[in-house]
Amino acid sequence: MDLLLLTLGFICIIVGILGSFLPVLPGLSSCWIGLLLLYLTDAVKNNYWVLGITFVIMVVITILDYVIPAQGTKRFGGSSYGVWGTNIGLIIGIIAPIPFGVIIGPFVGALVGELIFDAKDHRRALKAATGSLLGFLASGFVNFLFCIVFLGVFLTIVWQNRILLF
């Protein structure tokens, strides 16, 4: 049973790393589930500190995944219309069955929001939409970085308990 939980946990970690690039897959939450599955084995003693800290990190990064693109729009001169457009575009991009919808959605949403705010200033609208895109890419990078950290934690725990696991 331990080997099955270990294998499922590792698969969740890999899915999480891929999910930081492919928005269709869950990212950091999948990595955390992988750590949880590792701690559910009989060979690894429960460490609620590790699980608790990684859970808090996962929740904070997940929230930031929605906040960072909106802040990118704002930093690049976008109005509240652009910020709302980014958030609405992100939600539509997640739901819409189009390739790269999660990347295209916030960009188009910010662009449309800014054009609703001021239809004559296309340059400002494009700048705000670019900020949204850069914010999304920054968010994805942070997600990937923490997925790699979770992988490191997973591998360290496996290495420390290798005699009991294998």
Results as ranks from 00 to 15, higher is better:
Ile163Met: 10
Pro106Thr: 03
Asp42Pro: 01
Val102Gln: 02
Leu40Asn: 07
Asp65Tyr: 00
Ile14Lys: 02
Leu8Cys: 13
Val83Phe: 04
Val15Pro: 04
Thr54Glu: 04
Leu64Pro: 06
Ala43Val: 09
Phe141Asp: 00
Ile68Trp: 02
Gly131Arg: 00
Val24Gln: 09
Leu90Phe: 08
Leu38Gln: 04
Thr130Leu: 15
Leu165Gly: 05
Cys147Pro: 03
Lys45Ala: 12
Cys31Ile: 03
Ile94Thr: 13
Gly52Ala: 13
Val67Asp: 11
Leu165Asn: 04
Asp42Arg: 12
His122Ser: 11
Phe146Arg: 00
Ile88Cys: 03
Thr62Gln: 13
Asn161Asp: 04
Phe136Trp: 10
Leu165Asp: 08
Ile103Glu: 08
Phe141Cys: 08
Gly140Met: 15
Gly82Asp: 05
Val59His: 00
Leu164Cys: 10
Gly34Val: 05
Leu28Gly: 06
Tyr48Thr: 07
Leu18Trp: 13
Ala70Ser: 12
Cys147Thr: 07
Phe150Gln: 09
Ile148Gln: 05
Trp49Ile: 09
Lys45Tyr: 08
Tyr39Gln: 11
Ile104His: 04
Gly85Val: 07
Ile91Tyr: 00
Gly19Gln: 07
Phe166Ala: 12
Leu22Tyr: 14
Ser80Gln: 14
Arg124Pro: 02
Val149Glu: 09
Arg162Thr: 07
Leu151Pro: 07
Gly52Met: 08
Asn87Ser: 15
Phe76Trp: 11
Lys127Arg: 13
Tyr66Gln: 05
Asn47Leu: 02
Thr130Arg: 14
Pro26Tyr: 14
Leu111Tyr: 06
Val158Gly: 00
Leu3Gly: 08
Leu155Pro: 03
Tyr39Thr: 03
Lys120Pro: 03
Ile94Lys: 09
Val142Gly: 03
Phe136Cys: 02
Pro26Asn: 13
Ile116Phe: 04
Phe55Ala: 15
Ser80Phe: 06
Leu18Gln: 09
Pro23Ser: 14
Leu22Arg: 12
Ala129Pro: 05
Gly131Gln: 00
Leu155Ser: 13
Val142His: 01
Ser20His: 11
Tyr48Ser: 11
Leu126Gln: 12
Gly101Ile: 04
Pro106Trp: 02
Gly101Thr: 09
Ile148Cys: 07
Thr130His: 09
Leu145Asn: 05
Thr86Phe: 00
Gly85Asp: 11
Phe144Tyr: 13
Lys120Val: 07
Val142Gln: 04
Leu4Phe: 14
Pro97Tyr: 14
Ile148Arg: 00
Ala110Glu: 03
Ala125Trp: 03
Arg124Ile: 01
Leu5Met: 15
Val102Phe: 12
Pro69Tyr: 13
Gly72Gln: 02
Arg124Phe: 07
Ile14Arg: 07
Pro26Arg: 12
Pro97Ala: 13
Phe21Ala: 14
Ala129Tyr: 06
Leu5Cys: 11
Gln160Lys: 13
Asp118Ser: 13
Thr156Asp: 10
Asp65Pro: 00
Ser79Gln: 02
Cys147Met: 10
Ser29Ile: 13
Phe144Pro: 05
Leu126Cys: 08
Ala110Asp: 01
Asp65Gln: 12
Leu115Arg: 11
Val59Asn: 01
Leu164Pro: 03
Ala96His: 10
Gly27Ala: 05
Ile92Leu: 14
Ile92Ser: 04
Lys127Glu: 04
